[in-house]
Amino acid sequence: MIRTDKLSDPTVRAVVDAINSGDRDKYFNLLAPDAVMTDDGSERDLHQWADNEIFISHGHMEVESQSNNGHDLIARYSNDMWGEMRTKWHFEIAGDKVRRIDTGQA
């Protein structure tokens, strides 16, 4: 596993830290106003998805690997709704904000 403080991209590092600490305000402050996301290829409402899949259900990421300058992660993701699964995450970053998140099962 890769410790969160060892993730290459500072914005992605902050997102993972916000997820793992359950810090909803920090997470949403990292998103660009027009940020979008997909989950297993389907577009989702990013705010609703994050509330349900991360914050209400106590989401947690354990990063296995990173690539693409830290913008692509493979992680064990768990929450109270689905249990644990191996997931892939792709982040598009603009400045210090997340513009897009694509996630799904790895």
Score class of each variant (00 low, 15 high):
Gly95Met: 08
Leu46Glu: 00
Gln66Ala: 14
Ile93Val: 15
His47Tyr: 08
Thr103Ser: 10
Asn69Asp: 14
Thr4Lys: 01
Tyr77Pro: 00
Lys88Tyr: 12
Asn29Asp: 15
Leu30Glu: 14
His47Thr: 11
Arg100Ile: 01
Gly83Glu: 04
Met61His: 03
Gly70His: 06
Glu62Leu: 06
Pro33Thr: 11
Tyr27Asn: 15
Glu64Cys: 02
Val16Ser: 07
Asp17Trp: 02
Gly41Ala: 06
Val16Leu: 07
Glu53Asn: 12
Lys97Ala: 10
Asp45Glu: 14
Pro33Met: 08
Ser65Asp: 11
Ala14Lys: 14
Ile2Asp: 00
Trp82Lys: 09
Phe55Met: 05
Lys88Met: 06
Asp96Cys: 06
Ala50Cys: 07
Ile19Asn: 03
Asp102Val: 01
Asn68Ser: 11
Asp72Thr: 14
Trp89Tyr: 15
Arg76Ile: 03
Gly22Thr: 13
Arg76Phe: 03
Asp5Thr: 10
Gly22Pro: 15
Ile101Phe: 04
Ala106Val: 03
Trp89Thr: 00
Met1Gln: 09
Met81Ile: 06
Arg24Ile: 08
Val36Leu: 08
Asp25Gln: 15
Asp80Val: 00
Tyr27Ala: 13
Arg76Lys: 12
Asp102Ser: 06
Val36Asp: 02
Asn29Ala: 14
Val12Phe: 06
Asp5Gly: 03
Val98Trp: 02
Glu64Gln: 15
Arg76Gly: 00
Glu92Pro: 02
Glu53Ser: 13
Leu46Cys: 01
Arg3Ala: 15
Glu92Tyr: 04
Glu53Gln: 13
Ser8Trp: 01
Asp9His: 14
Arg86Asn: 11
Asp45Ile: 05
Asp25Tyr: 04
Asn52Phe: 05
Asn52Arg: 11
Arg100Cys: 03
